[in-house]
């Protein structure tokens, strides 16, 4: 097993492994169609004080009577008190969350999972490749880079969405660019008002000539998209152990008891969700695995 991954950050700040802590929605930010960002504050100040997370980690969000869902944290790890989750309506729980407003109470337990290895990537060029909602778990990395810009070389964000209106956080791109970060955006389907790129995210690699010796790739998006991101990165000789993916599986417990998020030898809730390609290569293209 590769030990260079960031270790899971166990002992969730919220205490009991399966019991949520009530948190109040302090702000709701519509992002795109069916996507909203919720800012949460723990009702128990002691829990809020103790709460810390690393980029790429997730929380279990709970609504009584409805259920629980694993949602990535999309905010700045340096400001754990302004805990944000960008939620796309995809099922039961997210549907119910989408009906909530500021003042509503959500159960939170976490943080769970490992994180993007931002420390291991110090001194490297970073290529951050996101598709759709996949930008949400990568945004904490971007905030980290903004705060520690000198630690990294050339930083490129390749970001894609289905439609221009589905692009996440467009109001922040200028800020990112002002920190010497190249932000390239593409959409799968455009209308006549769109003056930007059209095409899937992996083709944005065509213009890149990364230095394999000092490049780290972070990617999150639909799994089939990540397949082709990996192929493009490998074609440019980025080492397998420097291509990191955030994978998604159903999670019921988030503490490796329920068995659902197994991906071969790994539990994505504990050993993931961020895995380097060298660890998952044998299983990456096995159908129905």
């Amino acid at each position: 097993m590769n030990s260079t991954l960031a270790k899971g950050h166990w002992s969730p700040a919220t205490g009991h492994p399966m019991v949520p802590q009530p948190a109040v929605i302090t702000h709701v930010q519509p992002e795109a169609h069916g996507v909203m960002t919720y800012t949460l504050g723990f009702r128990d100040p002691a829990v809020g004080e103790a709460y810390r997370f690393h980029p790429g980690q997730f929380n279990m969000l709970y609504l009584p009577g409805i259920g629980e869902a694993a949602i990535s944290i999309s905010s700045d790890p340096a400001e754990p008190a302004a805990l944000r989750h960008t939620v796309r309506i995809a099922g039961n729980v997210t549907q119910a969350i989408s009906r909530m407003e500021a003042g509503g109470v959500i159960g939170v337990r976490g943080p769970y999972g490992n994180s993007w290895p931002v420390d291991r990537a110090v001194g490297n060029d970073l290529i951050i490749v996101a598709g759709g909602i996949g930008l949400a778990p990568l945004r904490p990395v971007i905030y980290h880079v903004l705060r520690h810009r000198a630690d990294y070389g050339k930083v490129t964000i390749l970001n894609g969405a289905r439609l221009p209106a589905d692009l996440l956080y467009p109001q922040e791109y200028d800020d990112w660019r002002s920190h010497d970060i190249e932000v390239v955006v593409t959409v799968d389907r455009a209308d006549e008002t769109w003056k930007g790129r059209v095409g899937v995210v992996p083709i944005l690699f065509y213009a890149l000539r990364p230095d394999p010796k000092r490049t780290t790739v972070f990617t999150c998006g639909p799994e089939i998209m990540m397949h082709f991101v990996v192929y493009e990165a490998l074609a440019r000789r980025v080492p397998k152990d420097r291509i990191y993916l955030s994978l998604e599986r159903n999670m019921k417990c988030a503490v490796a008891f329920c068995g659902r998020c197994q991906y071969g030898p790994t539990f994505l809730c504990k050993d993931g969700p961020v895995l380097s390609y060298d660890r998952i290569e044998p299983f990456f293209t096995v159908e129905e695995f």
Partner: peptide, 10 residues
């Protein structure tokens, strides 16, 4: 493939 299409739901 329309990879971003939201699936059938939970």
């Amino acid at each position: 493939l329309d990879v971003y299409a939201v699936g059938k739901g939970e």
